[in-house]
Amino acid sequence: MEHGISLLPDCRPARRSAPQYYDDVLAAARTADAAGLSYVKMTEHYLGDYGGYCPSPLTFLAAVAAQTSRIRLMTGCVLPVFHHPVQLAAHAAMVDAISHGRVDIGFARAWLPYEFEAFGVPMDTSRDRYVDTIRAVIQLWTQEKASAESPFFSFHDATSLPPVVQRPHPPVWGAAVRSRESFAWLAEQGFGLLVTPSPLAKDLETTQDLVRLYLETFEDTHEGTGMKPRVAISVPLLVADSDQEAMDTALPLLREYIDVMAEAAGSWSNTSSQDYPGYANLRRSFDLVTDAELEYGGTHVVGSPKAAVERIHWLRESLNADVCLWNVDFGGQDGTVMQRSLRTFIDKVLPHVP
């Protein structure tokens, strides 16, 4: 099993400035690199407190590349619905070159109505745009003269520069949350799966069922090819010397993490889309999460080193995870809290979860 750090800024500017946040997470990336962790992942979002400090994961990962030597750089994820494939392919290839071939590209469909509104992109086209853009990006990486025709873009005999360092192209992952169609499509394409389970363990069965669908579809589609499915999970992590110390520190941060997600999901209150069934009630599902559920029934890894080891084994087995990407910046926490937890994880947990 591989491990890495997962970053999704949920900072309110009044609480933490952007320079403070970037300093803290770049320091975390350097710590992870020095410790031999496999990945640092950053997610793209716009405008709101939920993810708004990272409109460009590839820009952030270029900075990580300059300060590290071996850790892989993962977008988790870029949102192709808001990008032209020529731009996205070239930008990713540039970071691949800067890092000497350390980039993994994760894609996601985007899910926040206010982002679609700001970019002038209809939500009901998101799945088709997602599929067409990913296919075009891979063409640009792998064909000397690439051409594509789509309702959303077109190009002919395009030679994308710089060329990617990794051959035939950087590893590709896709995020999926609720849609069975998304899990199956990622498997059919041979892509890795990025999944963030529900914050509550009582909802884990749904995610388990979707991961099984991905694995079964992958096996049916690629049997005999030598290709292997890959499942990466992302959950909050906070480790301290004792369970009580860890929870005392983590609970207000988890509450903030849930509250910021709920505020972002509130943009669904007056929106509906055929491409996003079930999202209309998303805010309510976050608002109903209680502190008691976070303390006693969450999917996060919070506790002493011993408890963390047990929890990680449980999550790994529950979700068939090959990669665990630990969300170390949740709740707008500062660098001191982040580094203390990360160092404890590296020193006292990692040796027991190979």
Score class of each variant (00 low, 15 high):
residue 2 E to G: 03
residue 2 E to C: 03
residue 4 G to C: 05
residue 8 L to I: 15
residue 8 L to V: 15
residue 15 R to G: 00
residue 20 Q to V: 12
residue 25 V to F: 11
residue 25 V to R: 08
residue 30 R to D: 07
residue 53 Y to F: 15
residue 56 S to W: 09
residue 59 T to D: 12
residue 62 A to P: 08
residue 68 T to V: 08
residue 77 C to A: 15
residue 80 P to Y: 12
residue 80 P to V: 13
residue 82 F to V: 09
residue 84 H to K: 12
residue 87 Q to V: 14
residue 87 Q to P: 02
residue 93 A to W: 04
residue 97 A to V: 15
residue 99 S to N: 11
residue 99 S to K: 09
residue 100 H to V: 06
residue 101 G to C: 09
residue 102 R to W: 08
residue 107 F to E: 01
residue 109 R to I: 14
residue 110 A to F: 05
residue 111 W to K: 04
residue 115 E to K: 03
residue 116 F to Y: 14
residue 119 F to A: 01
residue 126 S to H: 01
residue 130 Y to D: 00
residue 131 V to E: 08
residue 133 T to L: 03
residue 141 W to A: 00
residue 142 T to D: 00
residue 145 K to T: 08
residue 150 S to K: 05
residue 152 F to R: 06
residue 155 F to Q: 02
residue 165 V to E: 03
residue 166 Q to G: 02
residue 169 H to T: 00
residue 169 H to N: 00
residue 170 P to A: 00
residue 174 G to H: 07
residue 175 A to W: 01
residue 182 S to C: 06
residue 185 W to V: 03
residue 186 L to P: 00
residue 190 G to L: 04
residue 196 T to K: 09
residue 200 L to Q: 14
residue 202 K to Y: 07
residue 213 L to V: 13
residue 215 L to M: 11
residue 223 E to A: 15
residue 232 A to V: 01
residue 233 I to T: 07
residue 234 S to V: 05
residue 234 S to W: 00
residue 236 P to I: 07
residue 238 L to A: 01
residue 240 A to H: 08
residue 244 Q to F: 02
residue 250 A to G: 04
residue 251 L to Q: 05
residue 255 R to S: 12
residue 263 E to K: 11
residue 265 A to Q: 14
residue 265 A to N: 12
residue 267 S to W: 13
residue 267 S to Q: 13
residue 269 S to L: 13
residue 275 D to I: 04
residue 278 G to Y: 08
residue 281 N to C: 06
residue 282 L to K: 10
residue 283 R to H: 08
residue 287 D to I: 04
residue 288 L to Q: 14
residue 290 T to N: 04
residue 293 E to S: 14
residue 295 E to P: 08
residue 301 V to S: 10
residue 304 S to F: 11
residue 307 A to E: 12
residue 309 V to S: 10
residue 312 I to Q: 04
residue 315 L to S: 09
residue 319 L to I: 11
residue 326 W to V: 04
residue 342 L to D: 00
residue 345 F to T: 08
residue 346 I to C: 02
residue 350 L to V: 03
residue 352 H to C: 07
residue 353 V to Q: 05
